[in-house]
Computed example of a mutant assay.
Amino acid sequence: MLREATTDDVNLMLSWRNQETNRQVSKTSHEITAAEHAAWWSRVRTDPTRRVLIYLHDDRPAGVVTFFDLRQDGPQRTASWGFYLDADGLAGRGATLPAWLGVMRAAVDHAFDVLALDRLDGEVLADNTVVRQMNRRFRFVEGTGRRETHDGREITVVPISLNRDNRRRR
């Protein structure tokens, strides 16, 4: 289940985002400061092209889903998305895989059923083979990777997309 993020969630979101597991698979790999995070929150919470949602697993906050570059007018309704989980907390409870499947399902459902998108876009690091496999399981299609430099490291970023018609239904 997803719910709107609130100011009460800001510190929790920052603690999850700064977990080593999440930083390793993100374009931005440095530890996010409280000031950086507060500036981000200030921007996104009033931006009509963005949505920040909290993922609940077993009725407990367990992750963040963001939708951005939301285009809901025009011939094709699109957005980009990303997510991260409370990797440490879920691992400690033995709930990583069920939460991961759950957040992917919830995000895809939200994109197509709530936001009424035609296409959902995203990115994944090329060396994140586990996420790439999961994306394929959910029928995301990969584009051609591109080299980028972030936080002093060279990475290959692979674009992904999922069209409404190709979505896996439960």
Rank of each mutant, 00 (worst) to 15 (best):
R43T: 10
I54Y: 05
N135E: 03
R50S: 06
D86F: 07
R168E: 00
Y84R: 09
V108T: 12
D59H: 13
R164W: 03
T78K: 12
V64Y: 02
D113E: 15
R50K: 14
A99S: 14
G89P: 02
T46C: 07
L120S: 04
H57D: 01
R45L: 06
G122F: 06
D69P: 00
L70C: 02
D59K: 13
F67W: 02
P48M: 04
D165V: 15
P75A: 07
D151K: 11
D127E: 11
R71T: 15
V65K: 03
A38T: 14
D73G: 08
V103R: 11
W41L: 04
Y84V: 04
F68S: 13
T49S: 11
W81L: 11
F140T: 01
V141D: 02
H37Y: 10
V52N: 10
L115G: 02
A95K: 14
G63I: 01
L117V: 02
H110A: 11
T156Y: 03
R51H: 08
N166H: 08
R43W: 03
N166F: 00
L70K: 05
V114N: 10
R50P: 00
E123A: 10
G89I: 04
W81C: 03
G94I: 08
W40L: 03
D165T: 14
G94A: 06
V130D: 14
H150L: 03
L115D: 03
L56T: 02
L101V: 11
N128E: 06
E123I: 05
S42M: 02
R93E: 14
A95W: 12
R153L: 05
A79R: 09
V130L: 13
W100I: 05
R60M: 10
R105E: 11
P159F: 04
R45H: 12
D58S: 12
Q72I: 14
R105D: 13
L90P: 06
D118L: 07
F68D: 11
R168F: 00
L162T: 00
L162V: 00
V65L: 10
L53E: 04
L162K: 01
R167G: 02
L53C: 08
G143D: 00
L101K: 15
Q76V: 14
P61S: 01
E154S: 12
V141A: 13
G89F: 09
I160Q: 04
I160L: 14
A95R: 15
G145Q: 01
R164Q: 08
L90E: 07
G89Y: 07
F138K: 07
S80F: 11
N135D: 09
M104D: 05
G122V: 05
R51W: 05
D86R: 11
R119E: 07
S161T: 04
P61A: 03
D109I: 10
R93L: 13
D88K: 15
A95H: 15
Q72A: 05
R132H: 09
D118S: 05
